[in-house]
């Protein structure tokens, strides 16, 4: 559990998502990383059905799971407050079905390969919303370090050799929390940020058509 940076890698026009994922994977393998399994991060949305005033958006809670922390479940509110609980929390959310309902067809998933390079863990995967491909996600974790501001230099060096200029700046979520002791809830918040961006993009695409 070290400092983690999560980025969405843009798919250039004319190429399929799968092809770009393969290119990235080959690049990582060239660095000398060894394959060490798969990873999966998924996200469910629960929306409040309590009636509040008309202009206020109903409250949403996002429930995320990360295969890197298999015994935990993360719950994030729309004010970015993150609760880390164990996996029974899912059952608890189902008990709240009269107050918070799960949004159908809103399940986002990021799945792919996991690599290890020394003390780094690299992940390349594709994100999909209800089964349809939305984008590519790259994650790099440096396990020994717990403070983001210390190791941004070396993370940037490694990231740039994998994703190039996408990693010029640390991810926005991490920028605000650079000084504090890192915890998995920050990683999961970064994923949620990216998922929300994908959702907005697909919503605007649909409106555009």
């Amino acid at each position: 559990m070290g400092v983690t940076c999560v980025y969405s890698y843009p798919v250039p026009d004319g190429k399929s998502g799968q092809a770009v994922v393969e290119i990235l994977q080959r690049q990582i393998e060239l660095l000398g990383a060894l394959r060490s399994g798969h990873f999966c991060v998924d996200c469910d949305t629960f929306q409040s059905i309590l009636q509040t005033s008309i202009n206020v958006q109903p409250k949403t809670v996002y429930i995320l799971h990360n295969s890197e922390q298999p015994a935990s479940c993360f719950a994030i509110t729309d004010t970015s407050l993150c609760l880390t609980a164990d996996t029974l929390f899912d059952g608890l959310m189902h008990q709240l079905k009269n107050y918070y309902q799960q949004r159908k067809n809103a399940k986002m998933e990021a799945k792919g390969q996991r690599y290890e390079l020394g003390d780094f863990i690299l992940k390349v995967g594709s994100a999909s919303l209800a089964g349809s491909f939305k984008g590519i996600i790259v994650e790099v974790e440096y396990c020994p370090c717990m403070v983001a501001v210390d190791c941004w230099g070396l993370m940037k060096e490694l990231l740039q050799s994998v994703v190039g200029s996408v990693a010029d700046q640390p991810p926005p979520i991490l920028k605000n929390r650079q000084d504090e002791l890192y915890s998995p809830s920050i990683t999961v918040s970064q994923y949620l940020d990216i998922f929300n961006n994908f959702r907005k993009l697909s919503a605007t695409n649909q409106i555009g058509r």
Binding site: S48, K59, V61, A75, T77, T79, L81, C82, L83, T84, A85, D86, L88, F89, G91, L92, Q95, Y100, S185
Partner: peptide, 16 residues
């Protein structure tokens, strides 16, 4: 149901 969680649970429930 008994779920273990992190210490910001009271704020979280207030948010909900």
């Amino acid at each position: 149901f008994d779920v273990a969680c992190s210490s910001n649970v009271r704020d979280f429930l207030n948010e909900l």
